[in-house]
Design a binder for these strands. Structure first.
Length: 155
DNA sequence: GCCAACGTTGGC
DNA sequence: GCCAACGTTGGC
């Protein structure tokens, strides 16, 4: 028995990996998260959870696609790879530090939902929504069912 | 355990 | 490219 579907938002710099890249490869291991809070959220993920695909560090930051969690959490292989920029010398196979999930493509949004528009709905989303909370830079964050619905209604 | 220095994120 | 905000590291 699995708990009900949950929702998340995951950020990526489109120059690094965009929703178009995900559409091309269909599924992608979400490597490189090196923030404990973000990691802990990924550890809670279940296959089938909904994911809002967010482009950060770009001309118009915002949500550009829908994805889904496509695997259970497992250790991020890049933490063991000496040549990877994500290599972590303190991680061992016996005691990995960083976990990830595979993310699967669902669809691109007809129209991106810009951060500005998201901010304009702060009242409905709630003060605690990490995406628009001042000073929060989490790259993986939870989204409630109500927030998911509201955000996608802006499409 | 404190905190300064440093690195990173991400909007602008 | 700038820089504010935050997290991490490491000396003490």
């Amino acid at each position: 028995m699995s708990p009900r579907k949950r929702y998340w938002l995951m950020k990526s710099e489109p120059t690094d990996f965009s929703i178009d890249d995900l559409q091309r490869v269909r599924t992608e291991p979400w490597t490189g998260v090196r923030n404990y809070q973000a990691r802990n959220f990924m550890r809670q993920m279940q296959v089938g959870d909904g994911v809002l695909f967010y482009h950060s560090n770009t001309a118009v930051p915002g949500i550009y696609g829908i994805a889904e969690v496509a695997s259970a959490p497992y250790p991020d292989p890049t933490q063991f790879q000496k040549k990877s920029k994500y290599y972590d010398e303190k991680a061992t196979r016996e005691q990995p530090r960083w976990d990830l999930v595979d993310v699967g493509f669902v669809r691109k949004l007809d129209r991106g939902i810009a951060l500005d528009e998201i901010r304009a709905h702060a009242d409905g989303l709630g003060e605690e929504f990490a995406l628009i909370r001042k000073g929060t830079r989490l790259s993986v964050l939870p989204v409630t069912a109500a927030q998911w619905k509201l955000l996608l209604s802006l499409e």
